[in-house]
Amino acid sequence: MGATPEAPAVEPGPEGPGSAKPVLQVEGIHTYYGAIEALKGISLDVYEGEIVTLIGSNGAGKTTTLRSISGIVPPRTGKIVYQGRDITGLAGHTVAGMGIAHSPEGRRIFPRMTVLENLEMGAFTRRDQAAIRSDIDRVYEMFPRLKEREKQRAGTMSGGEQQMLAMGRALMAEPTLLLLDEPSLGLAPVIVDKIYEIIREINQQGVTILLVEQNANYALDVSARGYVLETGTVALTDKSASLRTDERVKAAYLGT
């Protein structure tokens, strides 16, 4: 969907793959909701072709980090750089038009619109009608259930179907960077397994992914690297395989 088809050949380390430049650099951002400081100097990097995950408890700042990157809640201080360009404080529609798509927590589909209309809304920054139609067909190939429900109102679908729609809608923006917020929230395990199969497929098609996930087992299994957030700060970062064996992570987030 407008992304390069091949993942990088360099194996990412804790600081990213080799000497390559990050697709996304978040540098010491402080984000507020009114007088409440939600992010207290978050810094992270995401490299081309990676899946990077943010894990942490409720209130740690994971969702706010994604909302800051996508322009929904701009940081008060700090810097966000995407593909070498400072995007700090840009409006959400401008950020989306640059290639960052956000699939939000709680799906936030348009319930009274049909599946097809929701997908068309995902392409609101585009004017290439033939390519839009082609990408809708690709979304239907990835999520056959959406094709079956094409004319159905989105609000009448199951939670799993709505999550598929939220992800499909985000892909309609032709992202090079996809922000996924809690894709497994409230779903049955069999549906979560399917969602994560699709996340892998999206990444293999060349889309870089920054993933927020409450279920750390799924997140660390699918990602190359991870950041552990605690009360608005980065408490720990490493390769996902190393985080899985870290005693602090195991005790706090993996249920062991």
Rank of each mutant, 00 (worst) to 15 (best):
M1T: 12
T4V: 15
T4S: 15
P8E: 04
G13R: 12
P14N: 07
E15T: 13
K21P: 02
K21L: 13
V23R: 10
V23P: 02
V26Y: 04
Y32E: 00
Y33C: 05
A35P: 13
A38T: 13
E48P: 08
V52D: 09
V52P: 06
N58M: 06
A60P: 02
T63D: 02
T64W: 01
I69N: 04
V73N: 11
V73I: 13
G78H: 11
G78I: 07
G84Q: 09
V95M: 06
M98R: 11
H102F: 14
E105F: 08
G106W: 04
R107C: 03
F110P: 08
P111S: 02
L119Y: 03
E120I: 07
A123Y: 02
A123W: 04
I132D: 07
I132C: 11
S134Q: 15
V139T: 12
M142I: 14
P144V: 14
R145W: 03
R145H: 09
L146C: 10
K147A: 15
R149W: 03
R149T: 10
K151M: 13
Q152G: 07
R153H: 13
M157W: 10
S158E: 10
S158T: 13
G159E: 09
Q162W: 09
A166N: 07
M167L: 14
M167D: 06
G168Y: 14
M172S: 05
L178V: 12
L180D: 06
E182L: 08
G186A: 08
V190H: 14
K194A: 15
I195V: 15
R200A: 14
E201H: 11
E201T: 15
I202G: 05
N203K: 00
L211H: 06
L211G: 03
N217V: 06
A219Y: 01
S223H: 06
L229P: 03
L229D: 03
E230A: 14
T231H: 05
T233H: 11
A235F: 14
K239G: 12
L243V: 01
L243F: 09
A252G: 10
L254M: 11
G255P: 10
